[in-house]
């Protein structure tokens, strides 16, 4: 509630400016982007920054017939890989020279590129009802909704 009040007393020009400002995606950064392995975990980790993922996590992943298994913080995870839909690429965008202010144009660059994501469920086997699997249906449907219609 507090936030809404604060916004309401801001001058109109401020609100407008946040709509004026753009965030540029620097594409020439793609060539220098890394291709790391990308994992989606079923927990929120209160951390943004380095971690010994390959040493602790990747090294202990077991590949079984229909699923992968691993554990994190003593909890059993089951997962599988999902690919980006045809015609789509995974990117990690990173803000450069973050100003922390809403008042300026911003710039992001491509810091990583990926084509597959390994997602992990807490204890349940991966299946077609998993969120990310279902969400990957979106680009196909977006094409239907937004593609050109015949005259």
């Amino acid at each position: 509630m507090g936030h809404i009040l604060v916004l309401d007393i801001l001058p109109l020009s401020f609100r407008m400016s946040s709509n004026c400002h753009v965030t540029t995606l620097q594409l020439d950064s793609v060539s220098q982007a890394e291709c790391p392995s990308v994992h989606l975990l079923p927990c929120e980790i209160e951390h943004d920054g380095p971690a010994e993922v390959s040493q602790f996590f990747t090294a202990t992943i077991k590949d079984q017939k229909h699923e992968k298994t691993v554990s994190f913080r003593g909890r059993g995870l089951k997962g599988q890989e999902v690919s980006c839909p045809q015609g789509y690429t995974g990117l990690v965008l990173r803000e450069v020279n973050k100003s922390g202010s809403d008042q300026e144009d911003r710039t992001v660059k491509v810091s990583s590129v990926f084509h597959k994501v390994t997602y992990w469920n807490l204890e349940t086997s991966p299946n077609s009802d998993d969120g990310i699997v279902m969400a990957m249906a979106w680009p196909d449907l977006a094409e239907a909704i937004h593609g050109p219609v015949d005259d």
Binding site: P42, I45, R73, L122
Partner: peptide, 8 residues
């Protein structure tokens, strides 16, 4: 350690 939250 860093705090980790699970849905349960």
């Amino acid at each position: 350690a860093v705090t980790v939250h699970w849905d349960d």
